[in-house]
Nucleic acid binder design. Structure first.
Lengths: 399, 399
DNA sequence: GGCAATATATTTAGCTTGTATCTAAATTAT
DNA sequence: ATAATTTAGATACAAGCTAAATATATTGCC
């Protein structure tokens, strides 16, 4: 009979307190023992013990006494030991795997992106092995640009345009993705020993937007990712919603429900919009910005198109507002550039459609929205498991 | 500068382990020290220490050695001390506050309902003080029926038909509820010293359904509560969704979005259905079961009505399936009796409307669905805060 | 330059809680 | 009766925290 719960031993205290110290020091430039005492509620003795533990494990470093740029602090008294988070103790990879291209970003443990690389797929229906190879090439390129190597990667976040459940398993549906993506996870694990965290791209967009986009600090946030398709990433109370099979926010069928006919529904809206904005789906850049330029110039036909799109978007947002009641909805993805023109039309319609209209904004992250979120996802994993992860210590970045 | 986090002290270990022991013993008839060791992973010494702690605090009791009905266990060896959860160490109240009536249920700490009482409101627009008085009378009645008194109440869960946010605050909207409900919380707190946990009634229905209804063990669950109005309680990953202002699942406006016209929309659907089923809203029992009886008899007009209702419900469920992807949707509330007739029509339509059709069931809890959920809500609070709560120890139930 | 004031570092003692291990007790089976 | 078995209880010890006393390094003033 195996225990259902692990016993709490004194070591747990150290883990909890170390996480507390590490969590604080990660978000500050550097900290003295006294500062850590004040913020964690621990006594000095415990703080020092924890710090020495963290130094031994490589997560923080002690600065030379009285270095150069010490912040003000008290001028009198024995000088304090200063500790700083070792942001270069390892790196994370954030990957955006699209239909046509894939982008990998390398970030240090504070989330600063230090390398980036993109690769295109030869065709849409290439075999799984080739697709994995292209993704791997993008990863290696990004690592090289960062001046480090595969050995320094502590976790990998990867976004795909398919439902992914809480355990990182891809929902098997009509998407051809399903077949090759489970392969990706295992492949990168086998190739480099990486821990790969698969997620839905819209979900990662939500993480990214809350971290470094226009949803900073918003706990109840929905990101509508409109690009190759329309998907929603939903955060409630600061947590991502997955649902049973990870299909929360999958609105492919929604036009049958919310629209008056499928030709005017949500799925086609994404295509229309993408085409109008010059996205990769259809239409091409020919019909591209002209709609928006014409609309800006006052052309009635172009304005009518924008109006219809705004109406559809407002209905989608109102529906999500009814079920989720988010504080804010962010429009992101390939069409974010053109979304600004839609905002007035959308916000004007919302009060008539829902009792709880959310704030609507446009993502400032551009087409890096998914990679930023993927980096955040990987960092979340690293931060949650910091004390279980082994840092291969070395001077400087490893190759 | 106040600490942002509390330091983890050795006492935390005891709290964690005591919760572990208490959590196990609560869900079993009685347990020996050895059984507790096996399930918690603690050593015997720790288990005994924890148990004696819990006995001192009143949460568990030691049974007389070798009582009557000891379960099998090992036949040889020194007889084991047996501990049991003290289910009568206190009680919780679960209240359903409707528009016309209010019902209070008293349950022991295992959730067994031991008292119940209902009171009707004189009119819909009575002043707040009177409404509070009626609720209080229902509570006293239920406590009397349970053979106990206000002093034994450890927590109160109360469900109302208005948005309630995560902190138990009522969203101020058009509902007249808002005014009086904040009053209710403070009033019961002042009158009896009770901790009152306000929640949306549909949310409580979801808690109840997952606990003792048809959603047992389902982590991603939506309950559609159709009675005086139509509301949804949404659970994702075992947690209730509130959204920014607690308005998650509020579908009052949804007909503007999902319907082709408001007269055929969701809000009117609730009225139609309620009327057809003989609910309190309109129509009365005259037009009541006849629709369902006629439909069962094959009457085309009645069948058409059912069909239209099923179509609407299927669209609502499909929409929620797109955004939340629940494993199961439960139909509950006053119309649950008649919902069985709609199931085939709903489930038949779902696959065309969503890629992730949930299982659809009808609640077996009848009109106690909200009180059951309210009891569960109160128990959740008590269980989470058990070691912080003071039990006024006494022999037998207190008055 | 010496000295007080100040802030931090370090040490020591003690408390809580846990594990591990050994011995005692109570019951059943032989 | 005796052996086997199972649990209870006691002892020793380790991890981690607090609290209090002591030591150290720096600033500022005389």
């Amino acid at each position: 009979m195996k225990p259902t719960a692990a016993a709490a031993t004194p070591q747990l205290l150290r883990r909890v307190n170390a996480q507390s110290v590490l969590g604080f020091i990660r978000n500050t430039e550097s900290a003295t023992g006294t500062e850590l005492m004040n913020h964690t509620g621990l006594t000095r003795a415990s703080v020092i013990a924890v710090c020495e533990d963290l130094i031994r494990r490589g997560w923080i470093r002690e600065l030379d006494a009285r270095g150069e740029d010490q912040p003000a602090g008290p001028r009198k008294g024995r000088p304090a030991r200063r500790f700083e988070f070792n942001a270069k103790a390892g790196f994370v990879l954030g990957i955006d795997i699209g239909a046509a291209t894939t982008t990998a970003a390398v970030a240090d443990l504070r989330g600063t992106v230090v390398g980036r690389s993109s690769e295109g797929f030869r065709a849409a229906d290439i075999p799984a092995a080739e697709r994995i190879d292209v993704v791997d090439r993008a990863c290696r390129g990004a690592l090289a640009a960062a001046g480090t190597g595969p050995g320094s990667v502590l976790a990998v976040g990867a976004g795909i345009a398919a439902p992914v459940d809480r355990d990182g398993k891809v929902l098997v549906t009509q998407h051809f993705w399903s077949l090759f993506d489970v392969g990706l996870r295992a492949a990168l694990q086998d190739l480099h020993g990486w821990t790969v965290l698969l997620e839905n791209d819209a979900n990662l967009a939500a993480l990214g937007e809350r971290w470094r986009g226009s949803g900073a600090g918003v706990d109840d946030l929905v990101v509508l990712l409109a690009g190759e398709r329309l998907g929603a990433g939903v955060m409630e109370s600061g947590r991502l919603l997955h649902g049973r099979g990870g299909a929360a926010g999958e609105m492919g069928y929604l036009d049958l429900v919310a629209g008056v006919g499928s030709s005017d529904g949500i799925a086609s809206l994404a295509r229309q919009w993408s085409a109008a904005a010059g996205g990769p789906a259809a239409g091409g850049p020919a019909s591209a910005r002209r709609v928006f330029e014409d609309a800006a110039a006052g052309d009635p036909a172009a304005l009518a198109i924008l109006d219809r799109i705004a109406d559809r978007m407002a209905r989608v947002i109102a529906t999500v507002a009814s079920f989720i009641n988010p504080e804010q909805v962010v429009l992101g993805g390939a069409v974010a550039d053109s979304a600004q023109a839609l905002l007035p039309g959308i916000t004007a319609r919302l009060p008539r459609l829902t009792a709880t209209p959310p704030r609507v904004t446009v993502s400032p992250l551009g087409d890096s929205i998914v990679t930023v979120g993927a980096v955040r996802h990987a960092l979340d994993y690293v931060e949650a498991n910091a004390l279980e992860l082994e840092l291969s210590l070395s001077a400087g970045p490893r190759l």
